[in-house]
């Protein structure tokens, strides 16, 4: 039986009239990497802060390692690491001093050297926090989240604002933490990142969970499957639609045709041939997580 690390039941949190989290539930296994995806203001940070015990939900239950993070905050601090969105620290303290301070507070041996090396921040070990670049500050945030070797690590937008090299470095650290058996909950706007790192993904908007599962599951369930993309005009699209009855859309000189079976492709090409249209593009495509995401979130916006 797999053990649950994080469980949240019907979380609700409002700020005045804004419902930041609206009946959201979550279940994350020990050792799992889970990614919350959602547009700005979707409620990711609010959700993660409730799970960290930094905010109290208006409604709903939370259990982190079978404890209530609001009531058992002190006990959980030792088992949970947090890298908050917009991590900040005391202006004139250096990364090395900050990590040492954390180690003393947690009562663990000074591991500043290893941690700084791990995130590639050794060069900046003795520079005041206020003089670090945005990405370097985030790296320190990650170090502090790992200082006490926690079982669960919350990372709120760990790679936002990082350069490509630093992002890859961050991915390596996350993969390493996963291989050490840590449970990770991360939020991101980058779908590629979620697909690459997460065992499971939750798509959130307006404080609600729109879809959840492995990236493949989500694409399978909410994606439109295969479509054929060819070059052509809107006129070609309407001819194909009337001739084959297939779902068809055109945009920017491209026509997308939804494909259910192989014979659809043959039929489409017949139409193309019959009107003597010249093909410069012919692609068979599968909708990715990004397409699903844009579609789902777009639909939510449309409902407003």
């Amino acid at each position: 039986m797999t053990q649950t690390a994080i469980a949240a039941e019907h979380l609700v949190k409002s700020y005045g009239s804004i419902k930041a989290v609206d009946g959201l539930s979550l279940n994350i296994r020990k050792g799992e990497v889970y990614s919350l995806l959602g547009p700005n203001g979707a409620g990711k940070t609010t959700t993660i802060e409730i799970l960290e015990g930094l905010r109290r939900p208006d409604e709903g239950n939370v259990s982190i390692l079978s404890m209530d993070p609001w009531k058992n905050a002190v006990e959980l601090r030792r088992k949970v690491g947090v890298m908050p969105q917009g991590f900040n620290f005391i202006a004139k303290i250096t990364p090395k001093e900050a990590i040492r301070h954390y180690c003393t507070l947690f009562g663990v041996p000074d591991n500043s050297k290893e941690l700084l090396e791990l995130v590639d921040l050794t060069d900046m070990a003795r520079v005041s926090f206020e003089h670090l670049s945005g990405g370097q500050k985030q790296k320190l945030g990650l170090c502090l989240a790992m200082a006490n070797s926690p079982e669960i690590i919350f990372l709120d937008e760990p790679t936002t604002g990082l350069d490509p090299q630093a992002r890859r470095n961050m991915w390596d650290v996350i993969k390493r933490l996963k291989s050490e058996g840590k449970t990770l909950l991360l939020t991101t706007h980058y779908l590629e990142e979620a697909e690459r790192l997460a065992d499971r993904v939750g798509i959130v908007d307006h404080g609600r969970m729109l879809a959840e599962g492995t990236p493949d599951d989500i694409i399978g369930e909410h994606g439109n499957g295969l479509y054929l993309r060819i070059s052509g005009t809107a006129e070609l699209a309407s001819r194909i639609r009337s001739a084959t009855g297939l779902e068809c859309s055109s945009k920017d000189g491209l026509v997308d045709i939804k494909i259910d079976a192989n014979e659809n492709i043959v039929n489409v090409l017949r139409v193309v041939e019959s009107v003597h249209s010249k093909l410069s593009v012919l692609e068979l495509k599968r909708e990715g997580l990004e397409d699903v995401f844009v579609k789902m979130v777009g639909r939510m916006e449309g409902n407003e």
């Binding site: 002190v74 601090r77 009562g107």
Partner: peptide
Amino acid sequence: KEKIFRQFSLTPLT
């Protein structure tokens, strides 16, 4: 304002 207390609250410092 700068959320440094939030940072402290994540450690065993009371």
